[in-house]
Design a protein around this nucleic acid. Structure first.
Lengths: 352, 352
DNA sequence: TTGATTTATTGGAACGTTCCATTTATAGGC
DNA sequence: GCCTATAAATGGAACGTTCCAATAAATCAA
């Protein structure tokens, strides 16, 4: 089976006793070919161990069938979920998405994007790396390749975005905390080079302000968006002269870190200090205590992004509407009982 | 910048006032071109918004620079780590790996593999989906494309494998449990269609047998390799007439599930029932209690796999040696204190 | 039978590169 | 100044497909 040099449609043609054009037609599933001829060709294809050369085909064909998916952090299950959601819809459209990881590195992202473009992708779904420069996608835009951003956006870009309603999610979470009786709140993690950060922080601020929290009781501690960052944030917060009693965290990883740090200090997350996460990754439910978090349905957003992309490709446009996905607060145990029913007000249980 | 139709080297040539061949040479970084000419061409490339067509190039060139990475479950951080490790070494070799997810589905895997082959990959690193048929890679082998398996292997395949020493890892873990005084042990999760399962179970068995555990005290509960599966396994085990006191779990997800189920029953993982995981994913360290687990260094194995692949491509071979990665048991808190020092022997603390 | 129509099949040009064999320009030796 | 050696640039064929226009074969109406 199969000699050294790779087989082409000419080899198939010879084997089946037809012309290369006929083979090409069969390959494309054209109905013009007589059934017996078709099966003769099919057999020859098997016999010579043929593998279709999509590169050659794309030289003539208008459109390729590959879509690139550029993700900033594959090890974050949140983004992996996003990828999985996209794959679901592409699969049913007969498209194979290729995933590439940028590890939150703009330089790497540049390489990855370049490579994907050279490969002739039909479209790109991107969760841009932190620190992506504004012009990073100009080349791609002028090439007319459709791009959609997922989860994250760039400051002043015209590229359509599929993302959760970060502002509202943060608002809901903060409102929940305030409803529980907390009066001095902190926002943990993230940094201002991320648009998402501003959205979430904005929601947090708005809730605090409209629900009567004094400006001096609205705290912010920036930090890495990881467990480690969460630990650091908590240490910083508890070292304050007047520590907060509740934290809304930039994402679940930060929340896990904060809970861990709490435990290390002998404090019980929920009872002694309230923690809310963001994203609602699968582990949130299984943590001890289970983490209250803002669910964003990343797989659903992935599906949405894929649909938008499909439509853009089909209608040969590079424009599309943004889509802001609904969020909802999943209340679990990390915020403890209602504080207003307790005798001692905020600040209790803060023994180091 | 850039008119509608995509620019080719001819457009660059016209713009720069040279021939297409010169442009091609510049593109390939040939030193034969005069520096001033080179920069003239470089400028033209910018001006026309050129994007290199790798498909066309591969028609002539012997080798492509893309490597496919086929992963069975991207949402499992363990596999995501593997991917990240590979990327590290490919990046420094100027290669962009494309990742595709099979979601543990052999049919999907078939499609993904086909698509990657059509794209003209130079090599394939695969963590095969469960239930992959023996012949699934024959086509690829006869096409002469190098393949290496990572983490998992197929029953009778000749394809090189990069995997952790599952047998030894399980042996170490079981020995640890026995050393702690446990005398009735169970293996949780997995199923016999996976070679890895047999390896890990084999190590568990060998440790039990050589360290004097009676055959009737060596229990096995198959199950899904997920949190859910772990929960089910634990329920099954505790429902036995004579329940075990310690479990070695197929992987960390199963272990997390088991610990969860323990908690739900009011039992304390570690003190009341010992649990050991496998893979040592990042969360293992952060769990409550921290999970004792067999560390396999998946990122390191990913790097190794990538190196092997690079060498295979370079030496134009499709053969390579297997590589069995070292493992080590990371002892944390999920196995509790030494049981031999306690008054009551195995079986205590098992109130439902 | 003839011409028109439909159904199957085919040759050739094109797609955007690379690479080889040439050609042209530049420099060096005498 | 001429010949040779070297450096720089070039034209053309090839890579494996698709698609159009053209041909060949089969069917049908008269």
């Amino acid at each position: 089976m199969a000699n050294r040099a790779k087989a082409t449609i000419f080899d198939i043609a010879r084997e089946a006793g037809v012309s290369k054009s006929t083979v090409s037609l069969v390959l494309q599933g054209s109905g013009l070919i007589r059934p017996e001829t078709t099966s003769k060709v099919r057999k020859a294809i098997e016999d010579v161990g043929y593998v279709y050369n999509r590169g050659a085909a794309n030289l003539r064909k208008a459109h390729s069938n590959v879509i690139g998916m550029v993700i900033n952090d594959l090890t974050n299950p949140f983004f992996a979920e996003l990828a999985v959601g996209m794959e679901r819809v592409f699969q049913s459209a007969g498209i194979v998405p290729f995933i590439a990881n940028t590890a939150e590195n703009p330089v790497r992202q540049e390489e990855v994007l370049k490579s994907l473009m050279e490969q002739g992708v039909a479209g790109l779904i991107v969760s841009p790396a932190r620190g992506t420069t504004p012009g990073a996608f100009r080349r791609i835009e002028t090439a007319g390749v459709p791009v959609v951003f997922a989860m994250r956006r760039l400051p002043e870009s015209r590229i359509p975005v599929i993302a959760p309603d970060n502002h509202r999610g943060a608002y809901l979470a903060a409102a929940h905390l305030i409803g529980k009786g907390h009066r001095r709140l902190v926002f943990f993690g993230g940094s201002s080079d991320l648009v998402v950060y501003h959205e979430r922080l904005g929601g947090f601020r708005e809730a605090c302000e409209t629900l009567g929290i004094a400006a001096r009781d609205i705290l912010i501690v920036e930090g890495e968006t990881s467990r480690k960052g969460g630990i650091a944030c908590l240490e910083t917060a508890l070292a304050m002269a007047e520590p907060p009693t509740a934290a809304l965290c930039f994402n679940d990883a930060v929340a896990f870190g904060a809970m861990l740090a709490l435990r290390k200090r002998g404090l019980e997350p929920g009872a002694d200090f309230a923690v809310v996460g963001f994203d609602d990754v699968v582990e949130a439910e299984h943590y001890m205590p289970a983490l209250t978090s803002v669910a964003v349905d990343s797989a659903g957003l992935g599906e949405r992004a894929a649909h938008v992309m499909l439509k853009m490709i089909q209608s040969r446009t590079t424009r599309a509407e943004d889509h802001i996905g609904a969020v909802n607060l999943v209340v679990r145990e990390s915020c403890g009982p209602d504080r207003r029913t307790r005798s001692r007000p905020a600040g209790s249980g803060n023994a180091a």
